[in-house]
Design a protein around this nucleic acid. Sequence first.
RNA 1: GGGCGUGUAGCUCAGUGGGAGAGCGCUGCCCUUACAAGGCAGAUGUCGCAGGUUCAAUCCCUGCCACGCCCACCA
Length: 888
Amino acid sequence: MTTTDLNNISTTYSPNDVEAKWYKTWEDGKYFKPKPGKTGESYCIIMPPPNVTGILHAGHALDVTTQDTLIRWKRMKGYETLWLPGMDHAGIATQSVVEKKVQKEEGKTRNDYTREEFLEKIWKWKEEYGGIIAKQQRVMGASPDWDYSMFTMDPEANEAVRKVFVQLYNEGLIYQSDYIINWDPVLQSAISDAEVEHQEVQGAFYHLTYKVKDSDVLLEIATTRPETLLGDTAVAVNPNDERFAHLIGKKAIVPICNREIPIIGDEHVDIEVGTGCLKVTPGHDFNDFEIGRRHNLEIINIINKDGTLNDLGLEFKGMACKTARNHIVEKLKDLGQFVKQEDHVHSVGHGDRSKAIIEPMVSKQWFLDVQDMAGVAVDGVEKGETTFYPKQWENTYFSWLKEPRNWCISRQLWWGHQIPVFYCGDCDHNWASEIDETKCAKCSSENIKQDPDVLDTWFSSGLWPMTTLGWPNKERMEERGYDKFFPTTCLVTGFDIIFFWVARMMMMTHKISGKKPFKDIYIHALVRDKQGRKMSKSLNNGIDPLDMVEQYGADAFRFTLAAGSGYNRGLNLDPERIGGYRNFINKIWNAFRFISPFLANAKAELPKDLDQQEKWIISELNSVTKEMNSSMEEYRYDDSCSAIYSFVYDKFCSWFIELSKNILHGDDKAAMERRASVLKYCYKDIVALLHPFTPFITEELWGYLKEEDDKLLIVHDYPEFNEELDYAKDQDFMNKFIEVITSIRNLRSSLNIKPKEEVNVSLFSDQEDLVEFFKASKHGFADLAKVKDLKVLPKSAQRPEKAVMKAMTHTEAFLILDGAIDLTEQIQKLEKDLGKTNKEIEKLDKKLSNEKFISNAKPEVIDKVKSEHAELSEKVKSINESLKNFKS
RNA sequence: GGGCGUGUAGCUCAGUGGGAGAGCGCUGCCCUUACAAGGCAGAUGUCGCAGGUUCAAUCCCUGCCACGCCCACCA
C-alpha cells in the first residue's frame, strides 16, 4: 500500500489484519530474541508462568501488557532484553480440573486408572491448554523469546527440583514429621496454610458435661465440634482459674466412649472464653495439637481421608463429620450430658480449590525448615537489594516472612514432581537421590520404592528464575545466558501471590545461588469488573481477552490496561473504557491520514529554522518524552499513558495540526516543507513513544514514516529528552494564544454565531512581544476562530463600542458586533466572572496582609501570590471598564 | 484480634503543604475536505466526619464512621 492509497481507505482503523501481519513479521524475523544493544546492559523478565488449568483471563492480559510494555521499552532503549515465557503445572489445580472432567465425561475417578494412565490424561490436557494460552499471549502482542519456553514439569525443571531437594534433605532442612496439617477431604491431600481460605460460618457452641472420675463434679465444656470428642485426650483448664485449678491432675471421662483422660493445666486456655474448660483433641485441632505436644498427650485420629469417621467413631463410623455431629448431640441428650446450644459465628477453613471444609489432621508429611531462609529473604528487601514497587507491598511480604512457619511441601497427588526419596523394602534404608534409583544404596536390594507423594507446586516455582536460565546444567546455563540474565531485573506479578511465590523464590533462589533473584518487584493491580468485584464464574462477569481484542483491537485493550496500571491495587475494567481508547487509536490513525500526503515534502531531519508554533510543539513533545521515560522507570504506566494521550489529543491534533493546514496548503513552499518535516518528526516520535503500549498500529504507521535505512520500530531507538529542544518562551506565547482563541470561541458560542460565520476581533494587551506574536498569528485566528479582521492594540487604545468581551490576565478580547443585541446576558456573564475573580483576589489579599505569611512562607510562594494578585487585578480592571461601557 | 489499604465530579480513578484534576458520561451547537470511533463550547465537587499541627491542610497527626483485602487464635 502506498501513502496515497491510505487516503482512499476507511476513516476507521481496522486492527485485525494489521496485528496478525506484524506479529508474524516480528516472530519470523526473530525480533524477540535477546541481542546486545547500545547500552551494553541486559534486562530480563521471567514471565510468571500461567497455570495450565484453562484459558487466560483478564488478569493474564494485564500481566502480559505490563511486562511486554517494559520489555519493548527497554529493547528500544538499547538493552539486551530477555522475556522468558513459561507455563505452570499447578499441581492441585490442574489435577482437580482433569478429575472433574473425567468424572463428568466418564463417570470415573482417578482411582479407576493407574497413576501412569491418569497422568497421561493430564499431559493431554496440558498440551491442549498450553497451546491456547500461548496463542492468546501472541494475540495480545507479547514479545517473549518463545524459544526459551519452559514448563514447570519439564525434565530440566525436574533436574533442578531434585538437585535442590537432595541438597536441602542432606542439610537436614527437609524432614519428615507427624504434624497437624490441613487435610482436604475432597482432594484427599494435605494442602498448605496458604491454600486455606477462612470463611465465616454460622455454627453453634455446644455445651456438654464431662464427669470427673471419683467425684460428683461435672465439667461443662463448650465446643463447636462435639463430634471430635471421640478423639479427646485431655481436658484443659487455665492453671490460674480458681474454679478448676484443684481438678488438675484428676481424670475426666469422655462421654459416649467413656475414655479416661487427664485434666491438665495450660495457659493457652482463656478463662473468659466459653466455660473456661477446653476439650483437647490433638489429632484434629491446631491449638490442641500444640497443647498435646506440651503435655505429651496421645493423638487419636478419628477421621478417614474422605472426611468420614473411622473405626474409632463407634456407631457413628462412616458418617460425615456434620452428620455425626447431630447424632452425637442427640446421644448426649439421651445421656443427660448435653446442656445447651448457642448460635455462634466462627471461621472455618475451606480449601481454596475444592471449597471443601478442611479437616485438621495429623499425618506424616515432608517439611522444609524455612526459619533461616526467611530471615535472609527479609534482609534482601530491607537492605534494598530488591525493591518493591509500590513500596507498601513490602509489609505484606514481611508479615509472612518475619514469622514463618515451616512449609509442608508434600502433597498426596499424582500431578507434580514426585518426591525423590527412596525406601528399601529389605533394610529400611531411605535416602534422597537426584536420579531414579533401581536398587538400595545400602544393601543393593532391588525391592525399593519411591515416595508416592509429589511436591507442592510452589517448590518448583520457587526455583523458577534459575531453572529457566538453565541451572543446574552447565551447558544449558551457557546456552541460555545464565550469567548474563541472572539475577533478573524485574518481577511483575499480582499481590495475591506475594506469599505463595515471591517469598518462596526469594528464599529458595538465595539459598541455592547466594543471590536475590530480582532487582525490582512490580506488583500490579488485580483486574476486577467495573463495579470492583472479582471476576468469577459464578458472577459470570469475566472478561475474555480474546473478545476484547476482537472487538476493539489489541492496542486499545493494552492501552486501557496500561492506563489503569500504576500503584493501585485494583483495576476495574469496563469494556466501555476500552471503547474510549479504541477511539484514541483511531485518532492516531486519522492524524496520520492527515499527515501522509505531505510526507513526500518532508526532510528526514528536524529543520533548524523553526517558527514559534514549531518550537512550541517540539518543546511539548520533548516534555512528554521526558515524562514518559521517567514515569516508566517507576512503573507508572498510568502517568505515561495520560502524558502521551493528552499530548496527542490536546496539543498535537487540536492545535498543531489545525495550525498547520494553512501552511501546508499555502504558497510559501519553504514554510510548507519545513512544516511537513516537523509534522513528520513529531509523528515519528509519537509512534515510537507509543510503541511499547500499542505495538501494532505504531509498527504499521512506522512503515510509512521510517527512512529507507531505518529498522523496524520494535528495535528503533526510544525517544529521549533533549535539553536543547526546550523553548519556554514559545510555549508561553502559544498557551496564551490558545487561551485567547478559546475565549473568542466562547464568545461566539454564547452569541450563537454559526461556526462558518466570520467575525471581527480586537485584542488589547500591554505585553509587546505577545502583541507581536498575535499579529504574526493572523492566520491562526482566521483558521481557528474564523476571525476576519483582527486588530491587536495596546490597552491605552479606545475599546470598540459595540462588542462583547472576555478578559484574561494578559489580554482583553473584544468580539465586534454588527447590529444591536441584548447585552443583559453578556453583562451577567461578566459579572459572574468578576465575582469569581474578586473572590480569588480576596483570598490572595488575605494572605499578603498576613504578617506571618510574609515572614514564614517561602519567597517563591510569596512572589507567586504577588504576581497572581497583579494579574487578577489587571483582569478585574478590564472587566470593570467594560461593564461600565456596556451599562452606559 | 493483628496488619495493610481505601473514602476526591454521575461513574472509574489520578493528585499535591500554597490557585481542586483526567477519562468516560452529561448539556448545547456543528456532517468545518485527518477523524461523527469526530469538532467546538459548557455544567458539575462541604476532596468521608470531627478535632489537632501550621502563616497556610484535600494532602501531615489523632480519633470516629463506612468499605475492601490479607494474616491469625476464638475452644
